[in-house]
Amino acid sequence: MHTVWKGSISFGLVNIPIKLHTATENKDIQLRQLHKECHTPINYRKVCSNCEKEVQTEDIVKAYEYSKNKFVVLDNEDLEKLKKENEDKSVEIIDFVKLEEIDPIYFEKSYFMAPDSGGGKAYSLLKKALMESGKIGVAKIIIRSKEQLAVVRVYNETLVMETIHFPDEVRSSKDVPNIPEDQQVVQKELDTALLLVDQLTTTFDPEKYTDDYRTALMELIEEKKSGKETVTASEKKQPTTASNVTDLMAALQASVDKTKKKKTTPRKRATTAKVKKNA
């Protein structure tokens, strides 16, 4: 697995050198957009809406829009300094809590934690402590210049770090529109609903759930591929640059001048010695 972060995590005086590996992957089928006429992939350019010119990376600055069309420009030097000041590779577990106390809405992304060199014993100690206590650890970590709140727990004999949202990142459910107020429920309808819930209750087995749309889409793609219903992107025409045109014209003009010179220059006649007759 690819390592996405290296550092250490500690609880109390115990320090564990670790590596993080992404625990999940997005298996959505990515479809490209092609030009209908020539089946060439569509490219997207960064264009200034005011100048209507394509902008290069070195011409772009970062800024915060504090009101409509009002910005605070942030220099790369300022951001790098701020990043270094906060990029502490040592992560401390702040608290230990019960997993059921955290609503799933807070969870964001999962990472497998692996011990780095020399960290095996401390890694096993933390894992055992979490398993015996039934608790999870709450910590802070900076990944890709962003401070993250995270929890550390045990999953299949492996420590897993789950990044979770800060409270102000979770929107209030009170802002959701059209939520009906509690209405009177007929007891018979409730009993029937509870019966249905009971009949569908089972032990969670993730292997039984599959992405039917993705499977069907791949089958369709393979079917079209087997039936030779494929297209090939047109080869990109190499543009003639101004320098090439200039060089070509210069070469042509030189050739014309050379040919013209040959035509206008009289051929030299053979030199013969003239014999002067003596009178």
Score class of each variant (00 low, 15 high):
M1D: 11
H2S: 14
T3R: 14
G7D: 01
S10E: 03
V14F: 02
K19V: 02
H21Y: 03
H21K: 11
A23K: 04
D28E: 15
D28F: 10
Q33V: 04
H35K: 12
H39W: 11
T40Y: 04
P41N: 06
I42L: 08
R45L: 13
R45K: 15
C48W: 01
E54V: 13
E58A: 07
V61L: 10
A63W: 00
F71K: 08
V73K: 12
L74H: 08
E77Q: 12
E77N: 09
D78C: 06
L79F: 11
K84V: 13
N86Y: 08
K89Y: 08
D95V: 01
I102M: 03
P104S: 09
I105A: 14
Y106G: 00
F112W: 13
M113F: 01
A114T: 15
P115W: 13
S117K: 15
S117T: 13
G118T: 09
K121Y: 05
Y123T: 02
L125P: 00
K128C: 06
A129F: 02
L130F: 02
E132C: 05
G134F: 08
K135V: 01
I136F: 00
G137R: 00
K140Q: 06
I142A: 03
K146H: 13
K146V: 06
L149H: 00
V154F: 05
N156E: 13
E157K: 12
T158L: 12
V160L: 09
H165P: 00
D168W: 15
E169Q: 15
S172G: 06
V176F: 05
V176R: 07
P177F: 13
P180M: 06
E181M: 07
Q183V: 07
Q183E: 14
Q184C: 06
Q184I: 07
V185S: 09
V185P: 00
V186M: 06
K188S: 14
D191A: 13
A193E: 05
T202N: 13
F204C: 02
P206I: 05
Y209R: 12
Y213V: 03
L217H: 03
M218V: 04
E223Q: 12
K224A: 11
V231S: 08
E235Q: 10
P239A: 09
P239T: 07
S243K: 14
V245H: 08
M249W: 05
L252R: 14
V256M: 08
K258I: 00
K260W: 05
T264S: 03
T265D: 04
K268Q: 11
K268I: 04
K268D: 11
T272V: 10
K277S: 06
N278G: 10
